[in-house]
Design a protein around this nucleic acid. Structure first.
Lengths: 336, 336
DNA sequence: CTGAAAGCGCTTACAG
DNA sequence: CTGAAAGCGCTTACAG
């Protein structure tokens, strides 16, 4: 027994009077061990508080039991919930999750990706990410399974887990057109080259088309998925020659920024202009007027992504790429 | 050169025509290497995209370059900001951060702590944590350095990084008493046995005493650091025989919950009862009326904690425990 | 049902 | 300025 630190598998084997092979098999269950031997080993493990060294195990198995989550902004409550759900479900399968924010500066994005490959993470969950070619290549080249949280199954690598966002946005815009009679409906998107904003944009266009309305291209603007982005985007829309009577925002933060601009401009919401969000983060119900939005089940998406990834990593699933679709729900409040 | 995956240090050594010893020293800089050799090795490293295997390195050095952050609730924007700042500064020193939520059920707290010790994290940042004896023992026994984000330096292990919360709360309560003339000031705390709520509670008491006001013990209640907790706590205070004219909350989420209760009870804020928060999370400015609160620099606290920890881990600091104090600031808005 | 031994990929005393 | 070799703590083919 070493005196300086924690017990090793050799300590356990010596104390229990068996080989390290047997200790290893008791712990992994990968080979039958007699009941008596098993009981003795388990008792020693407990007594010494033995926990296998993850570095030693990792070196041998070439697995780190580390999962990566890449999101642009952990401060966005949607992403925080997502991370919590992922961590929770991953922990249950004995995986640890590392959350990486995509830096604002493109030069640093590559550096963060390098850190993840250097760390040999076993699997990766991509939240909103730059579709920019090349950034992910090194990571994908390692063969680590990937889960994307948006976009079409055939538009990229790996499995996809998400709520039906095209449908969610379609429900929302239908509500604006049918129940509220808005006609000139603008759109503020996040980054145009980023998923999953694309699905939401698609739903917006489809619902308008389906209602026989032309998409007002002069009222479609792109900023980023922040409150600040929403302020700027709304300012541009409201300054249009023929301003919108409703503004559909690609997420709640953008919508909260749009509310700021409406307030500053003294335009009543929804009297003069309706504003809608997406995600239903907690703040959506706190602002005034409370946001009409679509519930996006962040925590459940995180849990589900963890399961998809660990199913592949632990060999419970080896089929072709799958898409997991979670339910959305229109949340009608005061802003539209 | 192996064909199946990434280059190893042997690949680099063979290709460059030197020993692995030399490659290792070029990479670590821990021993002089001739300029010519160094250049050749570096070129090969670049060409093969060599990155040292963290498991192999970890097994040899007995370090994982993994930091842990324990917080009760990553959904609290204060904690999300904190995590982002910690991750950012840790990454710069080549450490990865793992965020663990303390589960609600006490039985699961120990399980999560076990996961962290099993993972051999190098250092630990404790956000709000159960002072409950024993939970941290296994972690501390490993000798990993710890940073606490609250409490007195001598009240626990490790270094402390925080804003001056006692002072922050004192400033806030002084403002209520001197500038606003409130006299009957209640307090809603988070868990009484949890740091850093204790500092805030202390500031509240000190400011009252200093102003010659008795602490109204019937108006001091404890719930937890959530909106739901704030609703319940405020309901109890407002039902008191002699209700408060101002309610000081231990964080913004509690205050937002208290606003809910005031609204439900049709009590104007601050006309009938003033309500204050702490932290200045984004939502504090979004609610109506906007919260008077104290700015707690979450991201900076995270960054600072990372530096304190990595300074110890990488041997740049080996003195006795230190306390790092960051500036707070009173934010006056509408609610008090 | 059990064990001896190889080997994963590094870092670092030891030696020259 | 450089290299040969030990050893960190596991898992798993191989053998009985």
């Amino acid at each position: 027994m070493r005196h300086n630190g924690r017990a090793t598998i050799v300590d356990v084997a010596t104390t229990a009077g068996v080989s390290v092979t047997t200790v290893s098999h008791v712990l992994s269950g990968r080979r039958p061990v007699s009941a008596a031997t098993r009981a003795r080993v388990e008792e020693v493990v407990r007594r010494l508080g033995y926990q296998a060294d993850p570095s030693a195990r990792g070196l041998r198995t070439q697995r780190t039991r580390l999962l990566g989550l890449v999101v642009p902004d952990i401060t966005n409550p949607f992403n925080a919930e997502l991370a919590a759900g992922l961590q929770e479900a991953a922990l249950a399968e004995d995986y640890l999750t590392v959350v990486c924010e995509t830096p604002k500066e493109p030069s640093r994005v590559r550096a963060v990706m390098r850190q993840l490959t250097a760390r040999r993470i076993d699997g990766l969950v991509l939240g909103r990410y730059p579709t920019d070619e090349g950034v992910l290549d090194a990571l994908l080249a390692t063969g680590a399974p990937v889960v994307r949280l948006g976009g079409r199954l055939d538009a990229g690598p790996g499995d996809v887990v998400h709520a039906a966002e095209t449908e969610g946005m379609r429900d929302l815009v239908r509500h604006l057109v049918r129940d509220r009679d808005y006609r000139r409906i603008g759109f503020i998107g996040g980054a145009p080259g980023a998923e999953p904003g694309g699905d939401r944009h698609r739903g917006y266009r489809e619902a308008l088309t389906e209602a026989g309305l032309a998409v007002p291209e002069d009222l479609v603007v792109w900023t980023d998925f922040t409150r600040e982005g929403g302020r700027a985007g709304a300012a541009r829309l409201l300054a249009a020659a023929e301003p919108p009577d409703a503004i559909v925002c690609a997420n709640d933060l953008i919508a909260i920024g749009a509310l700021d601009t409406a307030r500053t401009s003294r335009l009543p919401v929804p009297g003069r202009v309706a504003i809608t969000g997406y995600d239903d983060i907690e703040a959506a119900a706190l602002v005034s007027p409370a946001l009409t939005t679509v519930l996006n089940p962040a925590r459940e998406i995180g849990r589900s992504a963890a399961r998809v990834l660990t199913d592949r990593l632990d060999g419970r699933e080896d089929g072709p790429a799958r898409e997991v679709l979670l339910a959305h729900r229109l949340v009608r409040r005061e802003s539209a």
